[in-house]
């Protein structure tokens, strides 16, 4: 049964999983930071918009978001993230990254907001007292400390994201879960197949967990 490993490109599939996770993590971090800034900003409209986005996105199943991205946005509305001449796999890959980023941005935003809450109010007051504007105090004083306080929850979001990439199989991205479906179809499902893929994900996520715990310990702001 272990000859499965040689007959199917499992490593290639996990490489696709890593690529999906990496790009989506970057996308989610950027979008999530913007959302967090909106939610802690003094402008009521931005606060409400940020809250609306977070509440809608994180309460929508990821499956639905990804199917909407590819079936709704790409096929029905024909919105493209790449030139029309690009192969189909490029389109679905980009939409998968878009969907995963959009979904996890809501969780990144909330993780960052919890980080902001670790920064004592005195820091913000002091920043304003020495004449920094809102933007300056946010980017120079609050956010750097907030990121350091939010590292542990951000690690959890990243681990969840890595595992959630498997949902992209249902829109045709050739990552680990898609290859697993091929193997189950051809070889019948068995515990060994399950363990191979479970092990693959443990290998991916365990170092992330250890690394982020170590980072959060080292970078924590000593008060």
């Amino acid at each position: 049964m272990l000859d499965i490993l040689s007959r199917y490109d499992i490593l290639g599939a996990f490489w696709m999983t890593i690529q999906l996770a990496l790009w989506s993590a970057i996308g989610a971090l950027v979008l999530g930071t913007i959302l967090a800034v909106m939610r802690v900003s003094p402008v009521a409209v931005l606060q409400k918009l940020g809250a609306l986005y977070v509440n809608v996105t994180r309460n929508t199943p990821l499956t639905l978001i990804l199917v909407f991205c590819v079936l709704g946005a790409f096929y029905i509305l024909q919105w493209r993230l790449a030139p029309a001449s690009a192969p189909l796999s490029t389109h679905t890959f980009l939409w998968a990254i878009f969907g995963l980023s959009a979904y996890h941005a809501a969780f990144v935003c909330e993780a960052l907001r919890s980080g902001v809450n670790t920064v004592p109010v005195g820091q913000a007051e002091a920043a304003r007292a020495i004449g920094l504007t809102f933007t300056q105090s946010l980017s120079q004083v609050i956010l750097p400390q907030a990121f350091r306080g939010a590292i542990a929850p951000l690690g959890s979001v990243l681990i969840a994201l890595i595992k959630n990439t498997t949902v992209a199989a249902i829109i045709g991205v050739k990552e680990a879960a898609a290859i697993m479906r091929v193997i189950i179809e051809n070889e019948t499902g068995s515990l060994i197949v399950f363990f191979i893929f479970a092990l693959g994900f443990v290998i991916l996520t365990l170092p992330v967990g250890v690394g982020f715990t170590e980072l959060s310990r080292r970078l924590a702001v000593k008060r």
């Binding site: 499956t63 199917v67 590819v70 079936l71 096929y75 029905i76 192969p87 189909l88 679905t92 199989a169 249902i170 829109i171 045709g172 898609a178």
Partner: peptide, 15 residues
């Protein structure tokens, strides 16, 4: 041939 794969055939139908 360009192949689009979905979770079920029902999702292929609208496209």
């Amino acid at each position: 041939v360009e192949l689009q794969e979905f979770g079920t055939y029902s999702e292929c139908l609208p496209a």
